[in-house]
Design a binder for these strands. Structure first.
Lengths: 138, 138
DNA sequence: CGGCATCCTTGCCGATACTG
DNA sequence: CAGTATCGGCAAGGATGCCG
């Protein structure tokens, strides 16, 4: 808010189109796809295999949304059977460092998060049982 | 995948706990909250005002999830009425640069995205009408 | 001020087919 | 191989009201 130039868009504003883009990026599958594409073009079924548990439906939908937003490009080759490659567009390429950092932050800090969760849950449980061991009969 | 060390966690894997964290971060509201906290502690209703259209319920829920994950800290002051401040934890602080970059990327590249969307929609519409103007009589 | 409880809707997402 | 079609469930999230 301080070091940043004045822009016509403000993601904090409701009804700002940036909210729509943020919604797109704030999607687990979209982040994984963009991250997966950062090393070069990847084919549909390769994406489907690499991003475990994604269904073809969701993969297809997410790819089309990303393509519509100009973040990825779709290339069709008239082979038999047909070959389709997805790759980052120049615009999408400006995002990958950030997206990749976010997607992999969890991997680097997973232990800390798990520890925090355990501590939080323990505190909550302790609070829920004011004097543990008391009132045990009945 | 190449320049990266081998980690015990892999966000591409199903059943990997990192997926849960990615789910948390891949949330529009969580991103906005984390970004909003990067300049210092903020109170509940201030967040509610700044992040337009967020409901108290969703704000409260998201804050608690972020607190449970150890990304933010909650401080209560026994004033009248009570004052509650939310701030980034040291762990959360390691995320803000990335989160902020993602949240504001949309603001910087909104025009390009809107142009891409318009081009995409125009191409789709054109494809849906093979030869415009032909077959016009019935 | 800073929430929580409740109800209710919607739309996303997964599962499961089927097609060019 | 690269998708589309259809269906159903379930949980995220909005609206509202109340409380310490």
């Amino acid at each position: 808010m301080s070091t940043q130039e004045e822009l016509p868009y403000d993601v904090y504003q409701d009804r700002c189109p940036t909210r729509l883009v943020l919604d797109r990026l704030a999607d687990k599958w979209a982040l994984l796809i963009l991250d997966r594409l950062k090393d070069g073009p990847v084919r549909f079924n390769s994406l489907k295999r690499d991003i475990m548990r994604i269904t073809p439906k969701v993969l297809s939908e997410t790819l089309r949304k990303l393509e519509r937003d100009g973040l990825i490009a779709r290339a069709v080759f008239a082979t038999v059977p047909v070959t389709v490659e997805y790759s980052l567009s120049p615009l999408g390429d400006t995002l990958t460092d950030t997206v990749s950092a976010l997607a992999h932050w969890a991997e680097r800090n997973m232990d800390a998060v798990l520890a925090a969760q355990a501590a939080y849950d323990a505190a909550i449980t302790a609070a829920a049982i004011p004097t543990p061991g008391l009132h045990r009969l009945r």
